[in-house]
Amino acid sequence: MTQSATGPATTEASGPAVELRAVHKWYGGFHALRGVDLTVARGERIVICGPSGSGKSTLIRCINQLERHQAGAVTVNGREATADPKALQAIRRAAGMVFQSFNLFPHLTVLQNCTLAPVQTGLATRAEADALAMSYLERVRIAEQALKHPAQLSGGQQQRVAIARALCMRPSIMLFDEPTSALDPEMVKEVLDTMIALASDGMTMLAVTHEMGFARRVADRVIFMDEGQIVESAPPGEFFEHPRHARTQAFLGQLLH
């Protein structure tokens, strides 16, 4: 796959890919995000880590507005997320998402999973969508399973299909919400390899993950979150060798054991 195939269908302004300004999110009385600021440049690869309940999933889900923030501003590709359905549609088209639990559509084949959204949103004709889907399935090395249903695949295979499905919308940003946490250990690698290949194509990526090897190898920046705030943000070398914050040090200390 060439650079142009993964790039956005529409190249927009050259500003940051994602910009969060003082974003707050409450779940009832629980303050899940406490004034998060984050700017993601085009092509930047960011890994977000932190203890459970620290708000990292909430953060990534606020970017494509699966969760609505209650204060602050979320801007994706220069478009601010408002109540306007058109803005929402544009943001979701720009940002593809991969979930921890895959969330493939079990009643559709692998190929139909990949073509449903492009065809239904008018992005492609059926023939175009089929061709596009097959090229992405090829890319995640699962094209030979295109006519199977998700339940017939292993977890790792399902997650690769989920990645292909998101790519079929030609997003310019990919969001990964703990993509390997639900996988058996022997399947983690195949999914990470797919993500590494994607990163090397220049895709803008935000990944919530505990795979520190992946972070070291791929990330431009590692972000550590705790209690709804970004505690530390640094390139992986610095982040892993010289974490500045005590909470980061404690977290990394636990991971190493």
Binding site: Q89, R92, G96, F99, S101, N103, L104, A166
Partner: peptide, 15 residues
């Protein structure tokens, strides 16, 4: 997750 996956793909309510 089924709603979220569809939403994240930009499928609207009716679709």
């Amino acid at each position: 997750g089924q709603y979220e996956a569809a939403e994240a793909l930009g499928l609207g309510y009716w679709r």
